[in-house]
Each structure stands twice: as C-alpha cells, then as structure tokens.
Design a protein around this nucleic acid. Structure first.
Lengths: 124, 124
DNA sequence: AGTCAAGTCAACCCTAAGGTTGAACATGCA
DNA sequence: TGCATGTTCAACCTTAGGGTTGACTTGACT
C-alpha cells in the first residue's frame, strides 16, 4: 500500500472515514466534533484522520490546541479519472460486444472459438 | 466491511486488483491469463478475483474448465456518485470561503473568532 | 503556578488480508 | 480409462488495520 491511489481507495474503504468525509464536505471540524457521533475513542478518530491525511483527502491546521480538519477536494479528481477511464473502456467494449453479437446472429453458430481479444492492459 | 461501497473501495485499494481491472477493461480473460503478468501464484489471483466479484466489479462465467472473467461497469457508477457528491459540496464550500475571505478583507482583522459552520453531515 | 481541555504518542490485543503450499475438483482429449 | 489443464479449497504464516488504555504535550483560563 504505497502509491497515492491505493491510499485514497483504502482510506475510503472504511465507513467511518467515508462518514467523516461526508461531514467535512459541509464544513471544517475539530477532532472532538468528528468523534462525537461514533462509539469509538477520540484516539481512534485521530488515527482515522491520519489515514485520510496520508491519502491527501484532508489537511489539518493548528488553532490553539484545536486542529481543525479540512477536506481537500482535489484528490477526488485522481479517483474519478481512474474510474472513468476504465468504466468508459468497459462500456464501449460492451457496446462493441452487442455489435458482434448482432453480426454473429447472421453468420453460422460457432460457440467453440474464443473471440476474446488478448491485449495486455497497462498498469494502475 | 459489509456494505457494497466499502467492498468496492477496498477491492480497488490493491494495485494488483486495479491492474486486473485495467486488463479486463480491454476484454475478458481467464484466471491464468490474468495471473501471468504477476509474480504471485494463480491461487492468489483467484482470491483477488473473489474480492472483485464480491464487490460486484467482476463476474465469472464457465466455459469448459475455464472461468472467463468479465468486468461489470455498472458498479463504477456507485463510486462515481459517492465521490461526485462530496467533491462538489467541498468545492462549492471552497468558493464560498473565497467570498467570505474577500469580504473579510474589507472588514477589520479578527483572527480569534471561529467562522466554521457547525452543521452535522449525514451518513455514507 | 495550577488546572482543564484538545490532541497525539506508544504499547498492546485481535481480526482480517494477502501470500504460500498441497490437495481436490472438473472438463477436454489421447 | 487415463492424463493433462484450469481453477478452487483448505490450512497455515505474517503483516497491516482498527480498536483499546494510559501517559504525554500544548495552550487557555483562572
């Protein structure tokens, strides 16, 4: 778990952390404010915030003893880009498949041949 | 880790699994084909596929001994929706903050007062 | 100075996640 | 029937993740 994309996805895999993001989308909050709704200790919440911060989803300033937490919207783009890229490819492929199936209906039936393309996809 | 959104994010938190999604976006593939590029056993890849399948990202048909893996594009929408929702809120808030700061520049400087809104955000 | 409040750090516990090896299960083919 | 191929199952190991408690820091307010 070292690259940013992994950290971001991993951070949002936890319901509490997603919930905190939802809360922070509405406005900055302190650790105690964030901890209040949950039945976990404030230390646990502090850890969750560290995970979100390491993922770049959140930043913490200092204001006296308080550490207001702020949601960073930019990182969301990273995810969206990744997702959209493969979703679109998959959907296009699906449409292409429809075309192929339509064409196959005209020709003779030959279920044995493997029509799957053998192209190698590039990394993350 | 029980709800779908958690499973999806968690599934994509692993670089190998993201890579497999990238590969599958280009076309269906068998377990062995998917395993080839990596230095892990085919059993490990089989486990990864189970994770992706449980998340709804992938489906497996049966074709003789082979189990061709197919990418399901719909689940991506679930993520995209979640992300977009909070990204937009955060960005709007950011713009509102700009407005507030611009207004503050006119008034007197008062760094002590806490201008952060105290609204409670709803869940995942 | 003394004390309270807000957060973090450190040590620990327990479970889940990713990896391995080895055996088992299915299906095509000689 | 026998064997090779493709995939999964089961048992195990090791590490990372989320939780706890307890001690510590930092700053505000008497």
């Amino acid at each position: 778990m070292d690259d940013q994309l992994s950290r971001v996805f991993s951070a949002l895999a936890d319901p509490i952390r997603r919930d905190m993001v939802a809360r922070l989308a509405v406005g900055d909050a302190t650790v105690n404010e964030l901890a209040e709704p949950y039945s976990v200790t404030v230390q646990a919440v502090s850890k969750h915030l560290k995970v979100l911060e390491d993922a770049g989803l959140v930043s913490r300033s200092k204001q006296a003893q308080r550490r207001p937490v702020h949601l960073e919207a930019e990182v969301f783009d990273l995810m969206t880009k990744w997702i959209e890229r493969y979703r679109q490819e998959a959907e296009q492929r699906y449409q292409r498949l429809d075309a192929v199936l339509a064409e196959m209906a005209v020709e003779d039936t030959d279920p044995a041949s493997n029509r799957v393309p053998r192209v190698r996809g590039e990394a993350s």
